[in-house]
Every structure is written in structure tokens, then in C-alpha cells.
Design a protein around this nucleic acid. Structure first.
Length: 491
RNA sequence: CGGGGUGUAGCGUAGCUUGGUUAGCGCGCCUGCUUUGGGAGCAGGAGGUCGUAGGUUCGAAUCCUACCACCCCGACCA
């Protein structure tokens, strides 16, 4: 139906790409691996930011900003951390350009070599903990609860719009605490914030859990994650919250004096979500007609398309649309009117379906005459005619209903594609047919996890918090296991 | 970095094997008229360093060499 969008059943990743580009969310830039986020895509990101930022502040955090550049030596201080990021760092080595000898081009001036190279931050733990050292002396200085909205760079070898780009936007929270329990509670609080955001704003159900050792953040004691299931049966890590123990405090020598005057190292957490959430949003709900957006994150929740036979009628529809917009806006419903004369209604209908606008209103001479209005919902593509007097109530209810409906739809899909198995053969079969989440027993060793990854490309997405204790045997080695863990192929 | 592939208008492409008129087509764009309840029709029009540099030739989008860029598969990926 939709022009130029590959069907999901034909080629899922091409479908994803088509939607991102044709809906005007983002496009590839002239810079390898870096994307341009276009206005419509950025508007969604801004909505995400606004909701998250409010949640962070409600949980006591403040925003701050730290440098883009990190001295190379900082990375050397936390051994695991550097090991994890070394292979994907962009490095600044010089600070000046000069005209080439032939006068035609420019080149790096070899005389302008930096004493110490600067790393473009792939994450900010090191620069932040170096800074915290100067801020923390006493237990009275704690906790420090800071969030940063920033861009980071990770030199990935293969990139995909939103899902994995060399530069991406994110937020990173970095907190410092006097006690281990407090830091652990913070880690948990923030993974819950993320899960709440994913489920209630993005309408994407997620599974919360801890990462296995091999999937842990470089430098963390415990990495907690929310994992979502995409329509092709692959998992997407949508957010992480790390309990960092005293690793960074020790690396950067950050100590505080407690009430008794004893010095001890500070306990830390960090947590983040990125523009990857945009990818999750697209893949979770969209269909072969285009994007489907949850009303809470749609740049505009309602679009009005006029239908007319001449300019005089267009003026009448515009007048009516202005009335409707005033009512909706008074009720905090965002609305756009598309009075462009260059396109016919059918064209606009298709365009807004592609862009995922939750509700579309059409008004034409017939409606005006009969005091009606046509309202169409994007999630089910149903349209109905209502008396204009009912418009506000219908739309209010529909927005709520769509938000819930797309969540329920995604939840149903996830439930239908979450499997339990005790057989490695069946495990492989599931991966090669439907895909999805698989709950299975694992002996807890990195070797077995690695073997499974090599043989099936599936990884442990997390050890779910709600996974009950259950005697079992590892599906690969037969060694004892106390609970099932969540496997999937992932993005 | 290994294997494969592609560069022609904003986008998608034909032409290349076998060198030879003015590089063709679709979408999009501009102008006008008719249209407008599910991606409009007609007429006219604009838009090209054929990836870059060199070579062969009377003549190169086409053949040769080098380079560059991008894409796919693999390796890599809190």
C-alpha cells in the first residue's frame, strides 16, 4: 500500500530503514557512520528528553555538563574501562591546520601536535570522576546526583540509523554515594525509571534484569538493563543502569570522611539511554504503512486534513479547522493543520500514516453541512464519522486508547514470542524459526555463554529480576542451574 | 582488515559487452489550466564536471591504470 516502503515480511531491516528515511526521522550524513536527525525525528527525541528529564528531576537529580574531550591518561586509570572502549575511540592528536605547499588544500600542521592526545568521550565516567574528586571530601558532600545530556562517539565498524551510530545523543547519569546499599538502590531506582518510561511513554514492554559478566559495562560490578523484543524476534537493549562499586572512586582516588572521621572510597552508579530508543520505538509498533507513534511521544497527536472543491470551500474548512485546533490546544492536545493546496487529500492521508500521527481528522463540505467530522486512528486504521459536538471527548478517549492499545499489542507479541525450553536443539530451532526471547537454564559460566553465542548468535540478554528460583540443568552442559536466564539474538 | 559489489540530474535508473548524432526514462521540482472524500490529469519547462585523476584513440559514460567514496557479507559492537 504505502509507496516505497519495503514490507516487513520481505526484508525487515530494509523496512526499518525505509521508515526512518521516508517518515523523515533521520538520514545518513556525509560523515561515515554519523546521521542527521531531521526535524520530525528530533521532535520525538525532544519529547523523550522532556519526559525523562522530568523523571530524573523528580528522583532528585540535577543536570550538568562535562567536556567532550577526555585526556588519554584518564582512560588508563580504570583498567577494565579502557579495555572495553579502547577499540572504538576517536582521538584528537592536533589542534591546527595549515595550507598545503601547493596552496590548493589544507593539511594537519605537524607542529601543532598535542602534548597529550584527547579522546572524544565514548562515555564520561573518567572525566566526571576526575571532577568529583574535587567535590567530595565529607559525607556531607554526598550523594551527588547528576545527569548530563550529551553526544558521545563510539567508532563502530558497522552502523545503522539510530540503532548504532558513530556519534549519538544520550543522557548519562553519574551518581556518588556514601554507602554500597545506597548506590545499589540508586541503580535499581534508575532501571525502574527507564522501564516506566519505556512502557508508559514509548508503549514498549521491557524485561528488567542483570547482565551476565561478559555483557557487563566495562568497569561495572553489576549492569542492569531493560530488554525489548522487536517485531523480527530480535532483542534490543533499551537502557542500562550500572552499579560501579568503588572501582572509579579507587581509580580516581575519591574518598570521603564519614561521621567518625574514617576515610573510605565513594560508591558509584551510572545509567543511560540514547537515541537508540528511537530505533526501538520505530521497530516496536510500526507497520507496512509506516510509523506508528504512541500519542505521548508524537510531535503532533492530531492532524487535520481539509477536503474541498474550490478555494471558497478551503477557506470554510480552514475556519472550521481553526475552531477545532483552538479547542484541542486548550485541552493540551497538539494538532497540526495541513492546508496545502498542492496535494490532494489521499496523498495527505498516506503521508500522515507514514509519519505515524495517532489521529487524523478530515473535514469536507459534506461534514460541514451535516455537522459531522471524520476521525481516523493510525494504530488500527479505522475511521468513523462523529457529530462535531463529540469531537473533543472522542479524541481524548482515542489518544488514551491508542497509547494502551499499542502497548497491549506489543505485549501480546512479546508474550507469544517468549519461549521456555530445556533442550539446546529446540533452542536452536526457535532461533531459526520464530526468534524471540528464550528462557533457559545456563550453568553460569562465561565459557558456556560464549559457546552458545558462537553456535547460535544468541546471547544472554539478562538474568530477569522476576525469574523465579527453579532447579534445573544447563541446556548445554547439564550442570546445575538455579534459575532461567533470558536469551535472544539481539541488535 | 579479508571477500564481493556499485558510483550517470535531488532520488531511482537505462546506455558500457561491441567507443561514434543532442546521454534516455521514471519519481520529484517549476509554470499554467482542470482537479481535490485514499498517493490527480494534461500541456509546457528547468536541472548532468557520467565518482576523481591520468592514459589509449580522430573520438571515451563506454576501453586501460591508479585513487576516492559508498553498499553488502565477515571480523568488531556498555
Amino acid at each position: 500500500m504505502a509507496k516505497g516502503i519495503t514490507k516487513r515480511s520481505e526484508n525487515y531491516s530494509q523496512w526499518y530503514n525505509d521508515i526512518v528515511i521516508k517518515a523523515g526521522l533521520a538520514e545518513n550524513s556525509a560523515v561515515r557512520g554519523c546521521m542527521v536527525i531531521k526535524p520530525y525525528g528530533y521532535a520525538i527525541w525532544e519529547k523523550m528528553q522532556a519526559a525523562l528529564d522530568t523523571m530524573f528531576k523528580e528522583t532528585g537529580h540535577e543536570n550538568a555538563y562535562f567536556p567532550l574531550f577526555i585526556p588519554k591518561s584518564f582512560f588508563a586509570k580504570e583498567a577494565k574501562h579502557v579495555e572495553g572502549f579502547a577499540k572504538e575511540c576517536a582521538v584528537v592528536t592536533h589542534y591546527r591546520l595549515r595550507t598545503t605547499a601547493d596552496g590548493k588544500g589544507i593539511e594537519v600542521d605537524p607542529d601543532a601536535k598535542l602534548e597529550e592526545e584527547l579522546i572524544v568521550r565514548p562515555t564520561s565516567e573518567t572525566i566526571i570522576w576526575n571532577t568529583y574528586k574535587g567535590w567530595i571530601q565529607s559525607h556531607r558532600d554526598l550523594p551527588i546526583l547528576i545527569n548530563q545530556w550529551a553526544n558521545v562517539v563510539r567508532w563502530e565498524m558497522r552502523t545503522r540509523l539510530f540503532l548504532r551510530t558513530a556519534e549519538f545523543l544520550w543522557q548519562e547519569g553519574h551518581t556518588a554515594h556514601a554507602t554500597e546499599q545506597e548506590a545499589i538502590a540508586e541503580t535499581k531506582q534508575m532501571i525502574n525509571v527507564y522501564a516506566n518510561f519505556a512502557e508508559n511513554w514509548m508503549a514498549v514492554p521491557v524485561i528488567k534484569g542483570s547482565k551476565s559478566e561478559s555483557e557487563r559495562f566495562a568497569g561495572a560490578i553489576d549492569t542492569q538493563a531493560i530488554e525489548a523484543l522487536m517485531q523480527d524476534g530480535k532483542a534490543l537493549q533499551a537502557g542500562t543502569s550500572h552499579f560501579l562499586g568503588q572501582n572509579f572512586a579507587k581509580a580516581f582516588d575519591v574518598k570521603f570522611a564519614d561521621k567518625d572521621g574514617n576515610l573510605s572510597h565513594v560508591w558509584a552508579t551510572s545509567w543511560g539511554v540514547s537515541t537508540r530508543l528511537m530505533g526501538a520505538l520505530v521497530m516496536a509498533h510500526s507497520d507496512d504503512n509506516g510509523l506508528v507513534l504512541p500519542p505521548k511521544l508524537a510531535p503532533y497527536q492530531v492532524v487535520i486534513v481539509p477536503i474541498y472543491n474550490n478555494m471558497e470551500q478551503l477557506d470554510q474548512m480552514t475556519e472550521k479547522a481553526n475552531e477545532i485546533m483552538a479547542i484541542l490546544r486548550k485541552n493540551n492536545i497538539s494538532v497540526k493543520y495541513d492546508g496545502r493546496d498542492a496535494f490532494r487529500p489521499g496523498h495527505k492521508f498516506a503521508e500522515y500514516e507514514l509519519k505515524g500521527v495517532p489521529i487524523r481528522i478530515a473535514i469536507g463540505p459534506r461534514d460541514l453541512e451535516q455537522g459531522n467530522i471524520e476521525i481516523a486512528r493510525r494504530d488500527t486504521l479505522e475511521k468513523k464519522v462523529y457529530p462535531q459536538t463529540e469531537m473533543l471527548e472522542v479524541i481524548k478517549n482515542l489518544l488514551d486508547e491508542i497509547q494502551i492499545n499499542i502497548y497491549q499489542k506489543a505485549l501480546k507479541f512479546r508474550n507469544e514470542n517468549t519461549f521456555k525450553t530445556d533442550s539446546y536443539e529446540e533452542f536452536k530451532k526457535i532461533l531459526d524459526t520464530t526468534g524471540g526471547f528464550i528462557l533457559a537454564h545456563w550453568d553460569g559460566t562465561t565459557e558456556t555463554e560464549e559457546k552458545i553465542k558462537e553456535e547460535t548468535k544468541a546471547t544472554i540478554r539478562c538474568i530477569p529480576f522476576d525469574s523465579p528460583l527453579e532447579e534445573g540443568k544447563c541446556m548445554v552442559t547439564g550442570k546445575p542451574s538455579i534459575r532461567r536466564v533470558l536469551f535472544a539474538r539481539s541488535y
